[in-house]
Design a protein around this nucleic acid. Sequence first.
DNA 1: CCTGATAGTGTACATACTACACTATGTAAA
DNA 2: TTTACATAGTGTAGTATGTACACTATCAGG
Lengths: 232, 232
Amino acid sequence: MSRVKLPKLHSDFSVDCVIFGFDDGELKVLLVERNEPPYKGWKAIPGNLVYDTEDIDGAAKRVLYELTGLKNIFLEQFYSFGKIDRHPQGRVITVAYYSIIKRMDNGLHPVSGYTKKAFWWPADKIPKLAFDHNEIVDRALETLRHKIQYEPVGFELLPGKFTLTQLQHIYEAILQKEIDKRNFRKKFLSYGLLTELEEKQTGVSHRAASFFKFNKSRYLSLKKRGFIFGMK
Amino acid sequence: MSRVKLPKLHSDFSVDCVIFGFDDGELKVLLVERNEPPYKGWKAIPGNLVYDTEDIDGAAKRVLYELTGLKNIFLEQFYSFGKIDRHPQGRVITVAYYSIIKRMDNGLHPVSGYTKKAFWWPADKIPKLAFDHNEIVDRALETLRHKIQYEPVGFELLPGKFTLTQLQHIYEAILQKEIDKRNFRKKFLSYGLLTELEEKQTGVSHRAASFFKFNKSRYLSLKKRGFIFGMK
DNA sequence: CCTGATAGTGTACATACTACACTATGTAAA
DNA sequence: TTTACATAGTGTAGTATGTACACTATCAGG
């Protein structure tokens, strides 16, 4: 197997990132305003071409950082989009990634000039986006709704300490249905994945809720022993 | 948005197909022997570059046909692979598809010269393959194991009429565990997705099993009404 | 008619899901 | 300081689902 005898191939493909956050009881998606053609001035999800010197997972991390300032985000690939005309400059397929994050208060400061700004937008009111990005966001939402039912991803959207009601609201927002409070608590607590903290809410004009934290190491050890998380 | 002012991009990416079949009580994967460099003479899964004039779903169908002679196969994309050095000729990412098929007796006749032949191979004894194809097959198997638990894909591996024992063997082969016969039947029949046929096995030296067929239209209408298939 | 092979069936128990309503505790306003 | 308001926090009974388990039925072949 020699690298030199065969003709060199070139390549153009991109990565796009759908980043979910949770705020004001609402599921949000991170959008950018593009500052370069094509689609200059349009809203879009953060995405750009992949360099020859990086693998696609690394490219997704880099692009997200350059376009939004977000760092150290765990991105998961969920689908690739390859219609012939999805990019006006030629044939570009894109590999799409998604992530769910908690620290939404972090400043969003694009590092490159490709985007003017980055901002959060309600997931159920996404405007018309550049390229085929609406289709990509739709599919990411589908993936998220599926995923939340068999992995405890809700925690990724919350700060380290949270109330059970906050957790429930996330499930309700993503699954788009109401959940009975008692049943939700009973089931979640029965898994033993939550640790109740001493601390309670302060400054609320009602009974203060206890804070909990997610016991990740316990989840991982249970999972290794065949435990299956489930939340319909 | 003008297509002419911006520089033209070129592209090199490929599709690869993992095709599952079931035979002799065993899960099988369709492999080819490559007839062109790189990896000439190696075993591989069917795959090739995507043309500029076709979208990636169409490319997967075409490539599968050219390399194996298989036609009219429903392919589902499951992951893209994009490590820097996965292709010796340069940077090529590949979009991987999988399918599960029943008619394994159909002749496998490569239409193009890219492959010498195509053949079925036991899924649990995959040899060393070209490129990163072992990784691709591993991930396809994971996807299949996951999928079979919440969609009735078992039927895709069987002929139109089949016995309940055949169906059970598929679940056992894919999930790699034994299943209780009574419980399996009870559960599957309770869904009402199977229609018992008049016909029975013939020429077997034991009590003849009834044939069943999958009631697909009923499955689709149940699904529309929120029914969730589940088989752990 | 006996042997061997697989088809086909039911019950009891444990676990999980569902529906449902009241008391507890904090702030703020009257 | 009392009252209104808002959310936290709790239990039970009924239903449905999953699991474990063993025997009889039917066919071919010797």
